[in-house]
Design a protein around this nucleic acid. Sequence first.
DNA 1: TTGACAGTTGAATAGATATTCAACTATAAT
DNA 2: ATTATAGTTGAATATCTATTCAACTGTCAA
Lengths: 120, 120
Amino acid sequence: MDCDCEIIHHDVVNNVRKRILNEKILLLMADFYKALSDSTRMKIIDVLYEGELCVCDISSLINMTKSATSHQLKYLKDMNLIKSRKQGKEVFYSLADKHVIQVFEISKLHILEDRNEKNC
Amino acid sequence: MDCDCEIIHHDVVNNVRKRILNEKILLLMADFYKALSDSTRMKIIDVLYEGELCVCDISSLINMTKSATSHQLKYLKDMNLIKSRKQGKEVFYSLADKHVIQVFEISKLHILEDRNEKNC
DNA sequence: TTGACAGTTGAATAGATATTCAACTATAAT
DNA sequence: ATTATAGTTGAATATCTATTCAACTGTCAA
């Protein structure tokens, strides 16, 4: 697990080391992305983009079983990316905050520009 | 893999279905996040934040072996998140485009605001 | 041309994770 | 009360993936 080589450019490395982010923060950031790194969860974010939906509607839209959908909804909720509201037998899910939307938009741009550059 | 329940709110679902993103795009977006969803790769993005670095310097900064670092650098390069430049024996890596920086900043805000709300 | 160093690579392994399945709770309707 | 429906949950499994290891390439210097 330890580094197996020597630092080559000491001055550059020392400068970088000064402003490196806290390891715990970087871990939480990676976890934030992990929540978005699965296509099922990405589809869920997409269908919730303009408003709340119940579990059955989400399942139908993304074409997954209720169980699989519910597992991923729990994951997204635990990660604070979506929130829920219970009404009778149904549970409505919606996006939690503006960061989710912002990040979604940027990654969409990233993908689309990439495809344009490659003409595909 | 198929949905095991009925659509409950047909009008809402039909509206959502009209503007759902292409499945292929959503998959590519998820892959973009997957590239950022690992703490080692997140550390690499972090150390490259202000400029290019060679593999040994990166390895030292993130405290991983050259081999493990190189594998992850290849992953990030294949995903178009970083680019490389060879000079003599050394290979210098740097961030590929503004989207990486933008997304990095937003997720950092997301994590920091979250921590503030919970006082931790 | 030999040795040393920077970096890459493929296979193997150990650990993580998405989906399935079956059983479960909670609410509403008859 | 009973039944049906919406949703949740835990365990199991099959797949994926990060790191290690050893062998490799390419470049420079002596």
